[in-house]
Amino acid sequence: MQQLLAIRGTGLGGAIGRVGSAAIDCLRALADVRTWAPLIVAQMRRLGVDSVPIAIFIAVFTGIVLALLSSYTFTGAVPLYFVGSLVGKTIMMELGPVLTGMALAGRVGANIAAELGTMRVTEQVDALETLAYDTNAFLIVPRVLAGGIMFPIVTAFAVAVGVVSGWITAVNLLDLSTPEFFKGLRLFYQFKDVWFGLVKAGTFGLAVTLMGCLQGLRARGGAQGVGRAATRAVVLGCESILVLDAFWAIVLL
């Protein structure tokens, strides 16, 4: 929160105002399709496809730990097939989107802030403006849209991998069969579990990429300034994820 306040140095109102103003500028820049449309596929690949390995890595171990933890908690108290319920529900609704979001806040947020920060301190952003480009349309919109589109897709991969990982763990390390695991998985399943997680992931993607862009474009003072921008982008990205996570839980559950 301290970092959030430092965005403008005039308190939370100023920080929210700056982020809100940037979001409005981005919405206006959406009209400049000719500028951002050719750039979006490359950003989707960079921010999304290239992030799949780290998301899968996290999901594999999350699935393992969740299966073991739930077994440890349920043994002797609750039928063991509830392991499937807990693994599925938790990964789909919470850990899949949030852990993937956090990992991508580090990878994507820092990447964007460092790239745009370097462009800022080497006057490449000024050069773009003198060439009559709208920097919102050229730099921010394709990244933010790519984040909003790709975070749910990467999260969907992570959720699938996490559930499969939990199932393999349950079958191999716990006294649980495949039918029992899937019985538990189906027991409390609702379609809402899936879209709730994916909607959250979409907003995480928008927030993380917007923070990365804003911090990068605010970078000053050479390499040190770029480093600071990358750090702020990651911190603010993670904080945004937690705030949005609570927001969606209050609004949608």
Binding site: M119, T122, E123, Q124, D126, A127, L128
Partner: peptide, 8 residues
């Protein structure tokens, strides 16, 4: 620009 500011 002073340092050319080419898009690297």
């Amino acid at each position: 620009f002073q340092f050319a500011a080419l898009f690297d």
